[in-house]
């Protein structure tokens, strides 16, 4: 029982991590707390429905098309809005993403309506037995995909020029600029990576939480909790934080009752911030905001 809840906690937590990591990446390169991150995923889920059910594309094709459209959306937001105010104080940046949030909410409600839509289960939910634990196949696949993305990001930041440039901007924008790194381009790239993560989060979460304009609202908050756990700076910290939220809410849901699932995330965020204002793993955070 406990081990099973642990596993499903890790499965949901790894999906929260996709949002949390994107929040950290965008925040540390642009000082922007991106409120629209969840809505990138929401638009992605709707696009996937369109490509898959309306246009009848094959699974892989629908998936790639969704990925591209969400990345384009994130890049457009950067180019049209965020770039113009990039030197403003963080509250301006934050409220600008709130404006984007309103627009995406309104547009998707306008086009697709406010009712909740179901999303086809791409992966089977029949439980499989792993080492004596029963766990649904979808959970296993979610963990594998999220883990694969984590590995991909690790390799990207470690070995590619673009990834190293992104880290350089995180450390010191001015020095990076003096070293000839095209800062504007790398910032756009950061938003593109955010879009990439959002597309995966949207498509993997859609079968679980269904598709509606408000589908990502609570997931976004849980992503924030994970991100704060890593001090809004550390990617491993954000991943660990998200997994902990997933586990905590599943165990609380199992033992206290399902309605406490939501409460636990908010209690965690208040506790983490009250006792470790820079997050439990945010020791390196240097930039004052």
């Amino acid at each position: 029982m406990f081990a099973q809840q642990l596993m499903s906690g890790i499965a949901t937590g790894s999906l929260y991590a996709l949002t949390a990591v994107a929040i950290v990446l965008i925040f540390r390169n642009t000082r922007t707390i991106n409120l629209a991150q969840g809505d990138f995923s929401m638009v992605g889920a709707f696009m996937a429905l369109v490509f898959f059910q309306v246009l009848h594309l094959s699974l892989i094709l629908a998936f790639v098309a969704t990925l591209i459209s969400v990345i384009v959306l994130a890049v457009l937001v950067e180019l049209l809005v965020m770039r113009k105010i990039r030197n403003a104080d963080w509250l301006t940046l934050f409220t600008a993403t709130l404006g984007v949030y309103y627009i995406l909410h309104g547009v998707s409600g306008w086009i697709w309506g406010r009712d909740t839509k179901s999303f086809p289960n791409i992966f089977s939910v029949t439980p499989v037995s792993i080492g004596g634990m029963l766990i649904s196949e979808a959970h296993v696949i979610n963990i594998l995909i999220a883990g694969g993305i984590g590995l991909l990001l690790f390799l990207f930041f470690k070995y590619t020029r673009a990834g190293i440039a992104m880290r350089a901007i995180t450390d010191d924008v001015e020095a990076a600029q003096l070293m000839g790194i095209p800062v504007k381009f790398v910032v756009t790239l950061t938003w593109a990576v955010g879009g990439f993560l959002a597309a995966f989060a949207g498509m993997l979460l859609a079968p679980i939480i269904y598709v509606s304009p408000g589908m990502m609202d609570t997931v976004l908050i849980k992503g924030y909790v994970g991100a704060v756990f890593g001090g809004l700076y550390s990617i491993p910290g954000a991943i660990v934080g998200s997994l902990m939220i997933g586990i905590a809410e599943n165990i609380a849901g199992g033992y206290l009752g399902a309605q406490y699932k939501v409460t636990i995330a908010f209690v965690m965020i208040v506790l983490i911030l009250a006792f470790r204002p820079r997050g439990l793993m945010g020791g390196q955070a240097r930039r004052e905001v």
Binding site: F27, I33, W90, I221, V228, Q259, F266, V270, V289
Partner: peptide
């Protein structure tokens, strides 16, 4: 302060809601 406080207070509002 700053972004951390914003996220913390957002958590407070959701905690009250739940």
């Amino acid at each position: 302060s700053g972004a951390f406080l914003a996220i913390g207070t957002l958590g407070f509002a959701f905690a009250i809601g739940s």
